[in-house]
Design a protein around this nucleic acid. Sequence first.
DNA 1: AAGACGTTGCCATGGCAACAAGCA
DNA 2: TGCTTGTTGCCATGGCAACGTCTT
Lengths: 391, 391
Amino acid sequence: MPSCQLASLGPIPDAVMDEINECILLGGAQDGSEMRIGAGVHDDVASMTCIHSVALCRFGVDTPKGTAEPARETSYNIMGGEEMTQPVMQYDNKVIPHSTPLTLRWLSENYEFAEGVCIPRSVIYKHYRDFCQKNGMTPVNPASFGKIIRQKFKRVKNRRLGTRGYSTYHYYGIGIRSFSVYYEEKYSRNGLNNRTNLPSTTAPILEFPNLQDVSLPVGVPHQLFCSFFTMYRTHCLRVFNFIYRNELDEVKEFLQHFWKGVPLHLMDILGSNAVVNMVGIWVKHFKDGNTSIEDEPWDGRPQTASTECNKEGVDEIIQDDRHVTVDTRARKLGIGHSAVQEMIESLGYREVCARWVLRLLTEDHKGQQKAITSELLQRYRHEGNDFCSVL
Amino acid sequence: MPSCQLASLGPIPDAVMDEINECILLGGAQDGSEMRIGAGVHDDVASMTCIHSVALCRFGVDTPKGTAEPARETSYNIMGGEEMTQPVMQYDNKVIPHSTPLTLRWLSENYEFAEGVCIPRSVIYKHYRDFCQKNGMTPVNPASFGKIIRQKFKRVKNRRLGTRGYSTYHYYGIGIRSFSVYYEEKYSRNGLNNRTNLPSTTAPILEFPNLQDVSLPVGVPHQLFCSFFTMYRTHCLRVFNFIYRNELDEVKEFLQHFWKGVPLHLMDILGSNAVVNMVGIWVKHFKDGNTSIEDEPWDGRPQTASTECNKEGVDEIIQDDRHVTVDTRARKLGIGHSAVQEMIESLGYREVCARWVLRLLTEDHKGQQKAITSELLQRYRHEGNDFCSVL
DNA sequence: AAGACGTTGCCATGGCAACAAGCA
DNA sequence: TGCTTGTTGCCATGGCAACGTCTT
């Protein structure tokens, strides 16, 4: 019996994949203003983990069942549309700082009171940014925008929805007008009825193996692996949910959050080849078209499959390993960014990516100890061991 | 007439300098838990700017006037003390998660209601962390600690003090008991009277040149320079204040904040040699024992002085320049951290440091544009020009 | 009965802008 | 009067923990 079910609602549309790719390429910050010194290293991790997890999601989904798909497709088109149908006012190329009355009017035209509707603040704010860009206005920050929202919708309430520890703020009581260019069914009054007949349990599910059915790789403490398994399972579920809800900005941030947040005592087992390979096996399994791992016995499988999988192209992997090393380091130097492109192209090397994520994380945690001397030697010694274990 | 006055209250005690050095060496995070991937690059900037600004403060201060010095000295000793006189309870090496009753008792023993006293939250929290460490407890996060504070002191009020845009949260109504090991006069009931006869205007001041009296380097837009000058002046004032208030943690964070926050359109003039040298001249001037720049005419001085200053040891500077390049890049690779030590030893090269801060910032802003192709070429081209302009 | 999980209240910090006070 | 600058209210987001519901 699966202890966790992943809702999947059809293949990821190309538009979404494009956005994800763009997100990876751009490092997540579209306007440059939020960039920080040192972002390069973050991007390394984010790119890799994004590739890995998105690959998992991509291959994990079932055939479409046709539920609620049209609405989602429409929403992408709207968001990706080039032209607002009727911009409130068009200034001739002059960038004006900000206009509260204009924003209030825009709010009136596109949103309405809607009891029972929850819309993420980030979604409305994204719409607002779009509105500002199309009208040559400099947007205000989220806090100030919130004040404007509450000027217009005095009775709006707060909700914090999302899985444990990852709740996001929502406005409760605001819906998108049905004729707005930003219309999305789930965020409007109309979506209230439809949502009830779309429970996640009726959707095709992606089942993870039950922990009891999995025989663990030798040498890995059972307790630690259980912890990691739980975290990773939840992680995948959340990535799924983010993508399903079209909150692609969240995906990147969340991935960073997850991989950076792996506790130190779990780092050790992540260094273990067997665990990495087990994750890889799951990905591979989903890729082959299975949505459940339950129908096949899992005992003993990880070890055998992992070796078989490893042998497939061990030379290339090592080759690629070194290659990525060079590029990653080059990018840490600030020399270039073409490596990201390469990493995307080498999507087939999911295991490599996963392994690299781990390596990166390990390196960085090491680096954070900031020992003044002998750090250099220690690092090379550590890397040496790591490299051997990859072989 | 100076438009801004810097309060300075004697030379920086060795204890403070030690802490600053430690802060630089450790990268600011004492427990490692707040470290993040990519912190290395932040540290580069922080170290440099810290050296630069601290040097400015160090050389800018006047002879001590003996006001309130004893209290400050005492406080350093207290904070640096090895042993609490009477720990509430001593567990034998076992790390226990957390104990609210213990914390409440500790609060009662060390703090009291004190109308009119403002104490920064960070200060109390630092004390609490110290208390936890000494008693083998895992401290709770600041938010949860705040709840405990309000359990004990129900009438505490909030204050946000600090210069514009850099306010920090304070508790108003809590003072440190006079017999506490954490006692500091300014944060206790006794400090209330003393503070009134220590207005910053009566303290020796460090005067910046008035903008009208400064003839700008050629080729630098007046408007841009004025903006930068205002920012830099405020920056120095704040660094002074932080050090005076013994809030050394703030110093590092603030320096990062300032240098990272230089707007893009000011980056250009910071790339200008003349501006960098002007800052360098001020530092040099203060170093020579002057607290005011007003008594000497400033017309035309920047250019001449800058060249003279440059010629002093241009070879060494370039030599050092390359040296720092290597080390900085090495550290970005995560190879080692001894470079920080070197930079501290080369404190004499303040101008070089300043220049390097600018270079680093420029590089990073460039890097954040994340253009996929031709970034490499562009960067080298840019660096080439930059290097020439240094010569 | 115990555990898992979503929701929500209270705390934290931080940005912006309005207000107030001091000063040229 | 106009400018500068400190303070504060309102908004944002985020962590932790308590509570209630639901599952095992």
